[in-house]
Amino acid sequence: MTITLDNPSRRNSQVPSLWAALADLAEGLDPGVRVVVLRGNGPSFSAGLDRGMLAPGGVEGEPELLGIAVDGPERTAERIEDFQRGFAAWASVPAVVVASVQGHAIGAGFQLALAADLRVVADDVQFAMRETSLGLVPDLGGTGPLVRAVGYAVALELCATGRFMGAQEAVARGLANVAVPLAELDATTADLVGALVDAPDAALRELKPLLASAATVAPGDQLRAEREAQGRLLNGLARAVGR
């Protein structure tokens, strides 16, 4: 499945209705889908939150963020939890999620790229977390994967300063898998998708959660997860040959 942000005149800026649509797609994903590609039309993957959301009155047809905030911190946090579903839900799908990223990936755009398992970037990519410059923090599920990818110190520096990270640094720090010229982004993404689809389906579906848990669970729990996954796969192989 390919999901395309398609508002290039606004650099694919984001609003809550988009987050709800992303959550619906993730939570209702056909179990037969093996790979999901997240991409954006135009010069940018996504320039982040539509700034109109932070203005009095907000954006027509969308919840007013400043209006939500006057309900108090607890009620505000409850609403943000709903917004987060559009990002966090991708970690739970059995499919491997690939972000194909060009141009600006700022704030919510950066966090959507971080919601993917793998990232292919064009050489013009510019990642940035700009929330702190607005007196806010990243709150759409991006802090965990960012720290896991680049480490606490680099994540703190990126978020606190709001500086831009380009393609080569993103690859060097492990944030992106590969950087290619913009003209080759679609073809490189397609090659990666093809390789993922060629992998044995059952093994790939066991592999994603197994590796995702490796950095956070106790060693004994990870060993158990490995042997249980392997047990299921070996059992499937035995049944396939009639044993």
Rank of each mutant, 00 (worst) to 15 (best):
G67Y: 04
I68P: 01
A69L: 14
A69F: 08
V70F: 00
P73R: 08
R75I: 08
T76D: 02
T76K: 03
T76I: 00
A77M: 11
A77K: 02
R79W: 09
I80P: 00
E81D: 15
G86F: 04
G86N: 00
F87G: 05
A88Q: 01
A89I: 14
A89K: 05
W90L: 09
W90G: 02
V93G: 04
V93W: 06
P94R: 10
P94Q: 09
A95I: 08
V96G: 04
V96F: 14
V96P: 02
V96M: 10
V98F: 04
A99E: 02
A99Q: 05
A99G: 05
Q102M: 10
G103Y: 11
I106F: 07
G107N: 11
G107T: 06
A108L: 10
A108Q: 07
Q111W: 10
Q111P: 02
L112F: 09
A113Y: 10
L114S: 02
L114D: 08
A115T: 03
A116K: 07
D117C: 14
R119V: 14
V120F: 03
V120T: 01
V121P: 06
V121T: 01
V121Q: 05
A122N: 06
D123W: 01
D123Q: 09
D124P: 04
Q126R: 15
M129N: 07
E131N: 07
T132L: 15
T132I: 09
T132C: 12
T132V: 15
S133K: 06
L134C: 04
G135Y: 08
L136S: 10
L136V: 00
L136R: 15
L136I: 01
V137N: 10
V137S: 14
V137K: 14
D139N: 04
L140C: 12
G142F: 12
T143R: 11
G144H: 07
G144V: 15
G144C: 00
G144M: 06
G144L: 15
P145R: 05
V147E: 15
R148I: 01
A149P: 08
A153P: 00
A155W: 05
A155T: 10
E157F: 03
E157L: 07
C159G: 11
C159D: 09
A160T: 09
T161A: 12
T161R: 13
G162V: 02
G162I: 09
F164I: 08
M165I: 15
G166I: 13
E169Y: 06
V171Q: 13
V171P: 09
V171I: 07
A172Q: 13
R173D: 10
G174N: 12
L175F: 13
L175P: 15
A176Y: 12
A176F: 14
N177H: 09
N177G: 15
V180Y: 07
V180F: 08
L182A: 12
L182F: 02
E184R: 13
E184C: 08
E184G: 01
L185A: 08
L185I: 03
L185W: 07
A187R: 12
A187P: 03
T188L: 05
T189R: 10
T189M: 05
A190W: 02
D191M: 04
L192F: 07
G194S: 09
V197I: 12
D198W: 01
